[in-house]
Design a protein around this nucleic acid. Structure first.
Lengths: 345, 345
DNA sequence: CTGAAAGCGCTTACAG
DNA sequence: CTGAAAGCGCTTACAG
């Protein structure tokens, strides 16, 4: 097709002028809108330019020039402890090495869909840091299609390096602790998969770890002991309340992450139950409030994850020496024994 | 001076070539570094270009073009509740209106000094949102000198609109509540002015409100009842511990903000004191954890402050209809009575 | 309002 | 390795 030959070379002002049937001078004036051009002529030129998808040489060069030392950080929230901490660490790492950060705060599924459909990152950034984003298949494809250096925390994106913990192992170590204390009716409090967290990989892995730990101890997971609530402290409280009014009373609870556990502790106190005498509680994170409420938890180093991801991205960009891992960098976790767990009474 | 006449017109490639004593072609090749030029010639050209501070036409136009719908958000932390919440709200507001956000996370005095000395915002953003930044005189001057639309939350920058609460009044309402309950020995827990919070205006205003409320009730502020700890939950705990081992035992405590109060509650529990029977606690914020720990507090709407500031900035940029206030927009606060306050026993 | 022509600030074969 | 010259993709007085 003749259009193809044309599209190989750049579309120039002369092309637009020819198509509109005017001189280059008039075309230039119409496009720039500076001096007087008749309304009809201008529109003919504008139409021609649109048809040929004309961009000025300057625009082309500007776009080609691209960003100078800027990366995109995409993150679903910054107000939850894990997300704020990992974002803060990654952003500081970038800043200290002279990189600017464009923050994309993509809190729900609609916003994410819209973002990944448009992918407005093309010429704005040198690379992308995805911080614990719940990504659908389509989102991942869209991310990979722009073919830009990419590193993620939490979720894994095929072909890109990532950092995280072994989610299933962390969950297992929390539940094993309860099993060692001789608990048998161990409940799971999860965050409800919703608009925000649809199919969030770490969540699934932690639930799997819970089931595996029980299975290894010869305990059949009881679906009546698995509840979920909206994410956050209030959600943890709601889930705990559901357990307390349920058909089977557990002696211990494993919450998917600390904020759910904090909510559970709240609900237990309101119900007049003592922790750990009447109920043990354990989770994952080591949130800032965990020592305050004396919560036993599996600690992860979130700052370290943010820094490692930022470093890996700078390595991909050639701004820092070293080669990032091909696949996943797994950081250790460790169980911190505090006052919310004890043998069942 | 002859240099002046020269600096009025743009410096062109021909100027650089002339100064280096080579042809335009050679000058072009040296600057672009594409084809072969002798080492000495290239350096002569590079020197000439530097002397004349030559920028290519493209660079000039690119810089002139400036940012497209991008604002800078500067904030000291995002991991503390107030800051994360206000940042999140402002960033979402901007995103929903098609604006990108460059996040500058400036956590300590050195980093801030460095940032404001360089002020790397010139051609990158259309406007600046300063979210509860502790700013020195120099920082403020630097911000104003680049003459860019600017809105702040918390602190006030002369000549720019700002949003916030009446800090002194909020503190007064918290302390008055304790006075109404007939407390007389009311302690103040403040955050220590440090590297991070040197001369932080809201902090000063809250302490003033505390003194004014006591004064209005005819109570002389007792310096032995005023303590401070590092910012955050741990700091609040340390300050409470200091009070408990001090020369005068208070019957109630006003903490400058909720995270300090949460720490104080922690310290009280560890000391075996009951709240509110042995000690009342009140503060300002209505942090997510406040209902969980049943903390009486003066609530402020932080999301609203972030949104209002973002809206005002877009109005200054002409991207949204309406005229921002000349000076400060003051949002209301309200005392939320919960379980940490009661009459002294 | 419009075009022919000169000009601008580069870049790039071509020739040496 | 370098320069003279042609060329590129515009923009802008000038003339009508």
């Amino acid at each position: 097709m003749s259009h193809d030959a044309q599209s190989l070379t750049r579309v120039t002002l002369a092309d637009v002028a020819a198509r509109a049937g005017v001189s280059e001078a008039t075309a230039s004036r119409s496009l720039r809108g500076v001096s007087k051009v008749s309304q009809v002529t201008r529109e003919r030129v504008l139409d021609a330019a649109r048809d040929l998808s004309y961009v000025t040489a300057l625009q082309a060069l500007t776009e080609q020039a691209g960003p100078r030392r800027t990366v995109a950080v995409i993150v679903p929230f910054i107000t939850r402890w894990f997300f704020g901490t990992v974002t803060s660490a990654a952003v500081d790492y970038m800043r200290d090495r002279g990189y600017d950060v464009l923050l994309y705060h993509l809190g729900n599924a609609d916003i994410r869909d819209h973002f990944f459909q448009r992918m407005p990152l093309a010429r704005k950034v040198d690379g992308i840091l995805s911080l614990s984003m719940p990504l659908t298949e389509e989102h991942t494809l869209s991310l990979r299609s722009i073919d830009m250096p990419l590193v993620s925390v939490g979720s894994t994106i095929p072909g890109s390096p990532s950092v995280g913990i072994d989610e299933a192992a962390a969950a297992k170590s929390a539940v094993s602790h309860l099993l060692h204390l001789r608990h048998e009716r161990i409940a799971l409090i999860a965050g409800t998969p919703d608009d925000f967290w649809f199919d969030f990989a770490p969540s699934n892995a932690r639930q799997l770890g819970y089931e595996q730990a029980l299975g290894a101890a010869g305990i059949e997971p009881d679906p009546r002991l698995v509840v979920s609530g909206p994410h956050g402290i209030q959600g943890g409280a709601a889930a705990m309340a559901e357990l307390l009014s349920g058909p089977v009373m557990p002696t211990a609870v494993f919450a998917e992450y600390d904020e759910l556990a904090l909510g559970a502790l709240w609900a237990l106190r309101r119900a007049g139950l003592r922790v750990p005498q009447d109920m043990s509680v354990v989770s994952i994170d080591d949130h800032e409030m965990a020592p305050v409420l004396d919560l036993t938890t599996v600690a992860q180093n979130v700052e370290r994850q943010g820094q490692a991801a930022a470093q890996m991205l700078l390595q991909l960009l050639g701004a820092e020496v070293g080669t990032p891992p091909q696949e996943r960098m797994v950081l250790p976790t460790n169980l911190i024994l505090r006052g919310t767990t004890a043998p069942p009474s």
